[in-house]
Design a binder for these strands. Structure first.
Lengths: 201, 201
DNA sequence: CTAGAAACTGAATCGTGATTCATTCTGCGC
DNA sequence: GCGCAGAATGAATCACGATTCAGTTTCTAG
């Protein structure tokens, strides 16, 4: 092994553990996954995990932070390339569903573990999830400010409604391992419903 | 204790255990709840639980079956008293949200534990949850057949979209312990969005 | 090349909690 | 009363798995 490989591996060890945890959690869920399985998946010793994370709980939380940040950055970046409220909305829906194709483990992890963890990890408020909600809310607000969307709905509520809808469909996509073109058609239908439901009259 | 009380208690023991489990699971989640806590909550000995249920997993599944059936019966009954696609839809949304007020423990249990259990209890397909989805789907189908709703959306997909939206808002209501009147206003907003989004043009 | 530091390892520890089962209780027919 | 069957009890068992840490390897600087 070259020096470069070694140093890359050392630097990446934390990331390798997070990757292993994601795979394992996606497959069996947080509570049914043994720390030793994560270690095996990551190719490190059991004890090594505790050099990078305080506990199994801490590993779960770190994984959320890391991956949700990735998801949010990806969405933010994409939305910057798109103009127009409706088209931005469509793109957000598409990206959400796209996760089932691009990162199925992550899709499964988010859809299944998110609620649990934000409720039962004491002291953990899941700020990154709230950021994602805020992004959806701001799509609604922008539409309202531009007169495209009706004003008699609260963006706060709508953010939840939209997230819930997208997340449930993502769950469906993840389990049925649907092909890419389903994503396109589902995006169309879901986007139409919401855009037409939200349009100012 | 009278004879009647004793026999009632004996008959109800299974129900008492289910009640205790619901409370405990709502408070701490399935995996963080000890069987002994459920027993204490139900006022029975630890071992007694195993006279009525094969295992902790079996208890969880039984609780789902029992409570989801109750939810479905309640919705079915209510919908029978309401005519008109739109009004039936509105009523379904309201009843879903109403759960946060009427049965907060059940609301918390369903919103938080449903996904976990249907994914990780091996061999368990969660038929009652699928029944609930079918009910929502049939609301969409009825609307389509009557020409009230647009035809270019699949009821299958829409059932998921609606369930996801309702469930996420129920989660919000459950956590914020919102008062009754919030339920009414939220019902109005969510119903409007979907009805307008679904309306045939 | 070498010593000390840092990173890593994985077998042993240790608390936990689901499940069991020997014992006790209860209700009922005789 | 008496004794049996079924129900209930709860302390003991026992497997499990997160975490620790004494020992080993790898890195770094002189």
């Amino acid at each position: 092994m070259s020096q470069a490989d070694k140093s890359r591996q050392a630097t990446d060890k934390r990331e390798r553990i997070l990757d292993g945890a994601l795979k394992a959690f996606a497959r069996k869920g947080f509570y049914n996954t043994k720390v030793s399985e994560i270690a095996a998946e990551a190719g490190v010793a059991d004890g090594t995990i505790y050099l990078y994370f305080k506990s199994k709980d801490d590993l779960l939380i770190s994984l959320f932070e890391d991956r949700m940040e990735w998801v949010i950055d990806r969405l933010t970046t994409e939305l910057n390339t798109v103009a127009g409220v409706e088209e931005r909305f469509r793109r957000a829906v598409e990206l959400h569903f796209q996760l089932a194709v691009e990162e199925p483990d992550l899709a499964e992890f988010i859809t299944v573990e998110l609620r649990q963890s934000s409720k039962f990890m004491k002291e953990y408020k899941n700020p990154k999830f709230l950021d994602y909600l805020k992004l959806l809310e701001s799509l609604v607000e922008d539409g309202q400010e531009q007169g495209v969307f009706r004003l008699d709905v609260e963006p706060r509520l709508l953010g939840r409604v939209i997230f819930g809808a997208l997340d449930e469909v993502l769950l469906l996509l993840t389990f049925s391992r649907s092909p890419n073109r389903d994503v396109v058609e589902m995006t169309r239908q879901v986007t139409n419903i919401f855009i037409d439901g939200l349009r100012a009259r």
